[in-house]
Simulated scan of single mutants.
Amino acid sequence: MTEYRIAVLPGDGIGPEITAVATAVLQQLTAAHGGISLDLRHQDAGAGRWLREGVAFTDEAYDACVRSDAILMGAIGLPEARHPDGREVNGDVIFRLRFDLDLYAGIRPVRSWPGLTSPLSAAPPVDYVVVRENVEGLYASRTGGCNVRDEVATDTIVITATGTRKVSEQAFRLAGKRGGRPRDGRRLVTCVDKANVLSSYAFFRQVFDQVAAEHPDIGADHVYVDAMTAYQVQQPDMFDVVVAENMFGDIISDLAAATVGGLGLAASGDIGDRHGLFQPAHGSAPTIAGKGVANPIATVLSAAMMLDWLADRHADPAAAEVARLIDDAVGDVLADGRVLTPDLGGTAGTAQVGEAIIAAAIRRR
């Protein structure tokens, strides 16, 4: 049996509630499987800690993340926890992990779920992955921008050949593992940019094309970001894997989630060559914290992504089997439709959804 050490950062707002569900799913289903075990080590990090102690992420907590095999995060941030310049302190945790561990690829899958009504009028099938460059782009200026007398503020976009190549290669690797886009099964990587206006995005596209030429068995395409938002609503079945600069990837991945039921279903993984951070794509939702109504599915699916990443990294079929079991169990619960949180039109509580997922997984075994 293989044991993995997992750093768990429950965070703020609904973070502890949804993390508790995800860790319960992990513990019960890995135990039921018997071929994998997890050593879950919780770390106190986030806006709550910053408000109490003046630091959101201690070096000790960061070091625990570095020493772990993977990191599972709930949600970080509170609107009142801000630095003097207006930035939320959640960046002290999320950006430190992304930038310091070089988690250059933000993997954000989106797909239609049986039993859920799509907000799209034509309801075409949706099944694609947004690969967001995570450590460059416009967000690289997060602490290096300029504000002169509160009259002029500037931020600088950063695009490097190395960063763009790495994230593009990750996108083509993902496309090689998938079954292609829903429309016709074609394996395709689409570069989303604004190359017709800005030289930085033209450079991003140039490097993407160089990587694409090295993968002749997988198609390559280009879409301007403004057109992308229309295609995501009108023709989402034309996409397989999408790669974009940091800010554009942030925006289009949230739109992608909205087309299939909302951010409560939006899992994500921030991965690099050695480390992986897995968290729901949504925020801490402090207005519903403590009410027991938050949707934990995005966190549960992120936990499944974590196991899948560990399986790939360590050639561990047991981890892959538990990941698929969780994924399938979530699908069963959503298709059944009786245990859904309010954001999906139901009346179930956070813990109830977790219990239903565990029960569905046990039935599958």
Rank of each mutant, 00 (worst) to 15 (best):
E3M: 11
I6E: 09
A20Y: 03
A20Q: 12
Q27E: 15
H33P: 08
G35I: 08
S37V: 01
H42F: 08
G46W: 12
D63C: 04
C65Y: 04
M73W: 00
A75D: 10
A75K: 07
A81R: 03
V89R: 11
V93M: 04
P109Y: 03
P125M: 01
Y128A: 01
V131E: 00
E133H: 14
E133V: 05
R142F: 15
R149M: 13
D150H: 14
D150K: 07
V158T: 13
V167H: 02
S168W: 00
R173T: 04
G179L: 01
G180S: 09
G180A: 11
R181E: 05
R187I: 00
L188D: 01
D193P: 02
N196H: 12
L198W: 13
S199W: 03
V207M: 05
Q210H: 06
D217F: 01
M228C: 15
V233T: 12
E245C: 09
N246S: 11
F248H: 00
F248D: 01
D254K: 09
D254C: 08
G262H: 09
S268H: 10
I271M: 13
R274L: 10
G276L: 11
G283L: 08
S284W: 11
G290T: 12
D308P: 01
P317G: 12
A318N: 10
V322M: 07
V322W: 08
L325Q: 14
I326F: 07
V330M: 11
D332P: 04
A335K: 13
T341S: 12
P342I: 06
P342G: 11
G346D: 06
G349Q: 08
V353P: 10
E355Y: 03
A356L: 03
A360F: 00
R363F: 03
